[in-house]
Design a protein around this nucleic acid. Structure first.
Lengths: 353, 353
DNA sequence: TTGAAAGCGCTAACAT
DNA sequence: ATGTTAGCGCTTTCAA
C-alpha cells in the first residue's frame, strides 16, 4: 500500500499566501487576530489550491474531529432492516441529521450498539476512542440508560438524547407526545366523536404515559369520560387485544387512537373482522406515520413523528455546544403534526344520538 | 473546549507490556517479527487497559483510516427520504455495508454527492481530503461516471462500483439483471403463460438492456414471440403508458413483467381500471421488491434486488484489496431471487386456448 | 497581529 | 525479533 499523503496541506497554503502555518490555521478556524487583508489572501490561496483540512490531522492537533456519532439500537435496527416493512426511522434520522451536519462541515457517523450486551460500556468506549467524535446522539432505548449517559458525561462529551424528557445529563430532544395525543383527540372531538378510545403503548417507555396524558387531558377538558383506555406494548398482537377490549365495551368507542402504527394496523384488521367499516363506523388515528400507513385501506390518518426535525435539532444543539454557544437547559420539545388521510370521518348520527 | 486526549494510548500499552511502541504497533497490525510470547503479553496489556487505537492517529502515521465512503446521489436520495414511500435502498446498503465493515474493524461513512452539479469533482475531492477513506463505494448514477471513476483511479484509491457491468476501473458489483428477468420469465412460462409482456426501463441505465435481454432470451428459447415489449423510464407515468400499449395490443399479454416497482404499480392500477383481475386475468411480476409491493392488493410477486449483499460484496472487495488479497478482475454478479406473492397465477384456460 | 516551537498518537524506515 | 528515529498535518502553547 502506497503511503497516501495529503495532496495539498496547510503548508502549501501558507507558502502560496506568504504567511505562516499558524495564520492559515487561524483563518480556517475563524480565529481572532488576523487582519482582514491577510485573511483574504489566505482564503484566496485556499480556494486557488482547493485546500481542505484533514480531519484526522485536525483531531491530532487537539481540535475537533467534526464527527458526530449517532448511536442506535443494534438488534432493533437490524430487525427493521431485515423485515423490510418500510420503517424509515433510520432514513429520517439521516435526512435530518446528515443535512444539518453538512451545513456546518460536520459528518454524521451512524453506529449500532448492542443494548442487551453486558459490555455496552466497552463497546461505546471503543467507538469513542477510535472515532473521537465531538458529540454523540442517543436514541431510545439508549437515551435514558444511565450507564451510557454517565459514561458520556464523564468523558465531557456533548451529547443529545432523543425521545427523552429528562433534562439531564446531555440535551434532551423529544417530540411533543402529550401535545400530539391532544391534537388527535381534539380533531376527533371536532368530528363529533365523544366515545374516543385510546390504546396505550408499553409502560416501559416514557412516551406512552405522555400520550395517554394528552388524550386524557383533552377528554376531561371536553367533559368526557376516560374509561376507554386499553394498554398494549406497541406490538401488533397487543394492539389486537387492546382493540378487542375497547370494541367489546358496553358502550364502545366511535373512534380510536392507537399509540403506534402496528397497533393501529391491528385495530384496523380487527374492526374489519367485526364488520365495522372505517371510517364510517369507526374513526382511527395512528401514531408515528411510518410509510406503511399510506398503503392500508383506507390510508390511516396519523400523527407524524418529526424524526428528521428532532435529529436536526439534536445535531444543532451539539454544534452549538461545541461552539460555546448557549444551549437550552430544558428538553427541546418538537411539535408533531396530524396527517389526515382516510381513516377519520364525522361521527355517524347513530342510535346513541 | 477542553483539549480532549486519548485516555489510553499505545504508549501506555507499551509500558504495561514492557515493550517498545513499535512492538505494540506490530501486534495491532498483525505485523511480522513478533514472538508469540511477546505478542500475547501485548494483547493482554491491550485487553487489560481496554486500549483502542485512534483511527485519526493511525491515519496520520501513514496507515489506513479504516473508513469506507459510500457515495449516493444527493437529489434522488433526499427525494426518497422526503417522499416516505418506503424505499429502503439506503437501509439495505447500510445493512449489508455497515455490518460487513464492522466485521473487519472498518466503518462505513454514508455521503451524498450532487451529480448534476458542475463541481462534482471538487465535492468528492473535498470529501476524500477531509476523510481520507481507504475505499469508496459508488452507486448509480455515479458508478459509470468517468469523471468520478477517473478521479478515484488517479488517487490510487480502492473503489467498487455498484450496478455496473463495466469491469474497470475499480471493481464492479452488480445484480444479475439478465438472469433475474430470465427467472421471472421462466416462472411465468411454468405457470402456463405464453403471451408475456415486458415493460423496459430507461435506456440510459445499462440494467434496462440486461433485463430486456433476459426476458427476450428466455422467450426465444421457449419458441415464443418477443413482440410484447414496451419502453418506460422507471416512472409511474411511463409505466401506465407502457402497460396501456401492451394491454391494447391485438393479442394482449396474460402476464407482464415490469422493470421496476413504480411501473408495476402503474400496471396494476391500469389493469384494474380496464376490468382485469390480478392475478386471475393478468399475472404481474415486478423488479426491485421495495417494501411497498407488500402493501398492494394483491401483494406483488417480485424480483428481489439484493442490495445488502451487493454492498457487502463491494465492501469485502475493498477490504481484500487493502489487505493485498486478490480481487476479481471481472464484475461480481450477485444472483437475484424471485419472491412469489399474490400477483402471479396459472394462466386461465381462455378462448385463445 | 503574527510567527516559531512543541506535541498529538501512531506507523514506516532504519537501526540493532 | 525488537527498539529508535523521524515525521504525518494540524493546533495549541508561547514568544516576538
Amino acid at each position: 500500500m502506497a503511503r497516501r499523503r495529503q495532496a495539498v496541506t496547510i503548508r502549501h497554503v501558507a507558502a502560496e499566501a506568504g504567511v505562516s502555518l499558524q495564520t492559515v490555521s487561524r483563518v480556517i478556524n475563524n480565529g481572532p487576530n488576523v487582519r482582514e487583508a491577510v485573511a483574504n489572501r489566505v482564503k484566496e490561496a485556499i480556494a486557488r489550491l482547493d485546500y481542505v483540512p484533514s480531519i484526522a490531522a485536525q483531531r491530532m492537533g487537539g481540535s475537533r474531529s467534526y464527527l458526530i456519532l449517532a448511536l442506535n439500537d443494534r438488534d432493533r435496527t437490524i430487525a427493521d432492516w431485515r423485515q423490510r416493512q418500510g420503517t424509515d426511522w433510520v432514513d429520517q434520522m439521516l435526512l435530518g441529521g446528515m443535512l444539518k451536519c453538512a451545513e456546518h462541515g460536520y459528518r454524521l457517523i451512524f453506529e449500532l450498539v448492542d443494548t442487551h450486551s453486558d459490555h455496552v460500556e466497552r463497546e461505546i468506549l471503543a467507538a469513542l476512542a477510535a472515532l473521537q467524535p465531538d458529540g454523540v446522539i442517543l436514541t431510545p432505548p439508549h437515551s435514558d440508560n444511565p450507564l451510557i449517559t454517565g459514561l458520556l458525561a464523564a468523558q465531557d462529551l456533548k451529547f443529545a438524547r432523543i425521545g427523552s424528557l429528562e433534562a439531564r445529563p446531555g440535551m434532551a430532544v423529544s417530540m411533543d407526545d402529550a401535545g400530539a395525543a391532544a391534537l388527535a383527540t381534539a380533531r376527533l372531538l371536532e368530528l363529533g366523536h365523544e366515545r374516543i378510545g385510546f390504546i396505550a403503548g408499553s409502560p416501559d417507555y416514557s412516551i406512552s404515559a405522555s400520550r395517554i396524558e394528552g388524550w386524557r387531558r383533552t377528554m376531561v377538558e371536553a367533559g368526557l369520560g376516560t374509561d376507554l383506555l386499553a394498554e398494549g406494548d406497541f406490538s401488533f398482537a397487543s394492539g389486537r387485544r387492546a382493540a378487542d377490549q375497547l370494541l367489546t365495551a358496553a358502550s364502545p368507542p366511535t373512534a380510536i387512537i392507537a399509540s403506534n402504527d402496528q397497533m393501529a394496523l391491528a385495530t384496523l384488521e380487527l374492526a374489519r373482522e367485526r364488520g365495522l367499516k372505517i371510517p364510517e363506523d369507526l374513526s382511527l388515528i395512528s401514531f408515528d406515520n411510518t410509510p406503511l400507513v399510506c398503503f392500508t385501506l383506507p390510508p390511516l390518518t396519523a400523527i407524524d413523528q418529526p424524526i428528521a426535525e428532532i435529529t436536526a435539532t439534536a445535531v444543532q444543539h451539539i454544534i452549538d455546544a461545541m461552539a460555546g454557544r448557549a444551549v437550552p437547559d430544558a428538553p427541546s420539545i418538537i411539535p408533531a403534526t396530524l396527517i389526515e388521510r382516510g381513516s377519520t370521518a364525522l361521527r355517524k348520527a347513530g342510535p346513541k344520538g
